[in-house]
Amino acid sequence: MRRLFSFLLVACLSATALAADPIKGERKEVFGDVTVHYSTFISTFLQPDIAKSAELVRSKNQGVINISVMNAGKPSTAQVSGTVKDLTSQSVPLKFKQITEQGAIYYIAQYPVEQAETRTFTINVEAAGKSNSFSFNQELFPGE
């Protein structure tokens, strides 16, 4: 699980190179003491053993979104939900599952990626007694 933590942390921090939302240098949103880090990528970037341990499908047509919530600089539990919308405005709900390991808490979900396109993600995070939402765009390339 430590390898999963390391991979997800690197993926979360390095996803800016793939971002279709170039204005932000770091993929995070800050709501008072709560900071939400996020990244998304095609699941073939995961090593097979990491995907298996996280119970994720590794496929060129499956995306992964990773959310990390920090409260006052410490990992925090939260209720995370959201949707991903394609260019035709077809929306798919994201079903997040929590992964907890050695001082880290992550929320991951998978979604289909049929073709190269920019997707719009809308994420809702309930943490520290407050509910916050944000949206971002990500260009995705299946099969790569």
Rank of each mutant, 00 (worst) to 15 (best):
3 R>C: 04
5 F>S: 05
6 S>I: 06
7 F>C: 01
7 F>G: 00
8 L>D: 15
9 L>H: 13
11 A>R: 14
12 C>H: 14
12 C>Q: 15
13 L>Q: 13
14 S>Y: 14
14 S>Q: 13
14 S>G: 13
15 A>V: 13
15 A>L: 01
15 A>F: 10
17 A>S: 14
18 L>I: 00
19 A>Y: 07
21 D>H: 11
23 I>G: 13
25 G>L: 11
27 R>P: 09
28 K>N: 11
31 F>G: 08
32 G>K: 04
33 D>T: 07
33 D>M: 00
37 H>D: 12
37 H>N: 12
38 Y>R: 06
39 S>C: 05
40 T>D: 12
42 I>V: 15
43 S>C: 03
44 T>Q: 05
46 L>Q: 03
47 Q>M: 12
48 P>I: 06
48 P>F: 10
48 P>V: 07
50 I>K: 01
51 A>N: 09
51 A>E: 10
53 S>M: 09
54 A>M: 14
56 L>Q: 10
56 L>R: 06
58 R>A: 07
59 S>M: 06
59 S>F: 12
60 K>R: 09
61 N>D: 11
63 G>L: 02
64 V>D: 07
65 I>W: 01
66 N>W: 05
66 N>G: 02
67 I>G: 08
67 I>P: 10
67 I>S: 08
76 S>V: 05
78 A>E: 04
78 A>Q: 02
79 Q>R: 03
80 V>S: 02
82 G>P: 07
82 G>S: 04
83 T>P: 00
83 T>M: 00
85 K>V: 10
85 K>W: 03
85 K>E: 14
88 T>I: 08
92 V>S: 06
94 L>T: 11
94 L>Y: 12
94 L>C: 07
97 K>D: 09
97 K>Q: 13
99 I>F: 15
100 T>M: 05
101 E>M: 04
103 G>T: 14
106 Y>M: 09
106 Y>H: 15
108 I>M: 09
108 I>C: 05
109 A>S: 14
111 Y>S: 11
113 V>R: 06
113 V>P: 08
115 Q>L: 05
119 R>Q: 09
121 F>T: 04
122 T>R: 00
122 T>G: 01
122 T>L: 00
126 E>Y: 02
127 A>F: 08
129 G>V: 06
130 K>M: 06
131 S>L: 04
132 N>F: 12
134 F>K: 04
136 F>L: 01
139 E>A: 05
140 L>I: 01
140 L>R: 01
141 F>C: 06
142 P>C: 02
143 G>H: 06
143 G>W: 05
144 E>V: 07
144 E>F: 07
144 E>M: 04
